[in-house]
Design a protein around this nucleic acid. Structure first.
Lengths: 179, 179
DNA sequence: CCCTGCTATGTCACTTCTGAAATAAACTAT
DNA sequence: ATAGTTTATTTCAGAAGTGACATAGCAGGG
């Protein structure tokens, strides 16, 4: 089973969603650490339905197709629970900025410094955004492990930590590249 | 041009290498933040040669094929320099452990706690390894921006920071999931 | 009334990436 | 001797992922 499948099972773990809603969630709460295009999601949902991991209610949709509200079956829930406790397979992170850094010596130093300054700003903005979301989640008690939204809160915390790490690293480079 | 192409140009920026040596480097110094299989690397090197970005000397190899020592051409070096200073395209990070965390509520709590404890240990080990490499690099003066190996040192520093972030996060979860 | 944007699903061509196998010389350890 | 590992390149089938397009109802602003 592909990781995409598990990502979709994970998306549905807290309640039924339409394919469209999953696409939206792949941008923010799950999307901090997983993404998929709708062109991947819709066919995969169909295959998972065929395999009995999910099923759906049908409702009249706005466009030419029916709205499908997907929900985990017992088999899907079992498959998810079993996968969750398995050690994750390490897929090495890919980051273009760090890759560029490796060959930094082959570019103009001042231009690279400007690049890190610009990236730092992007990370600062994203950090502020995540921090605001985190404060809101805490105000709603999501930081309690007994709360069903604790999982989403924990991934958000990872987002905050990762942004802070990137920001610090970019700022370190800006300082270090000073002539 | 695909990012793989730029990764290969970056790999060659400091001097000529064989395809095999690039495969090795994709595990450690570059590999902290970029990876590719040899089945991607060899055909891409051939295409890049056809496009005039790299060329190579030929030497007798151990196996049935000749050894090819690849080197950037002027065109390749120009292409690399131009790409380096361009803002990186954000490809969202994918991490199975964080994805699992999102659906944490669907699994047994003690089993999840054990998972984070095991992951914390992996990160602690990797952190120690990177830290040792970092100390060695500093002893050799790679932390000076004027040193040609400064780029590799900076990526290693990112590796250290990222491992520390993941370790802290895992330990936070172990504590938080205490009953 | 028209245009834009949002909801909602589905499809296609294409690129990228993974995993495995084939080949064979040279070196290392038993 | 011989067994196993490392060096080194090439190729292939298949899986995963990207980007763009098609369809169409409904809401809101100008």
């Amino acid at each position: 089973m592909s990781t995409l499948r598990y990502a979709l099972l994970a998306a549905l773990h807290a309640g039924p969603l339409t394919g469209y809603e999953i696409v939206q969630r792949m941008r923010r709460p799950i999307g901090y650490y997983w993404t998929a295009q709708q062109s991947q999601i819709y066919p995969e949902l169909a295959r998972m339905t065929a395999d009995g991991l999910i099923d759906h209610d049908v409702a009249a949709g706005p466009g030419p197709h029916d709205r499908k509200i997907h929900r985990l079956t017992a088999a899907g829930r079992a498959e998810l629970a079993q996968w969750l406790v398995q050690p994750p397979q390490r897929r090495p992170p890919k980051d273009e900025l760090v890759l560029k850094t490796y060959a930094l010596a082959a570019a103009d130093r001042e231009a690279m410094r400007a690049l890190y300054r610009a990236e730092a700003q992007k990370h600062r903005r994203r950090l502020d955004d995540y921090l605001a979301q985190q404060a809101q989640a805490e105000a709603q008690g999501h930081d309690d492990p007994a709360n069903p939204k604790f999982g989403a809160y924990a991934t958000l915390r990872m987002g905050v930590a990762a942004e802070r790490t990137m920001l610090d690293w970019c700022e370190w480079l800006v300082l270090r590249l000073e002539r």
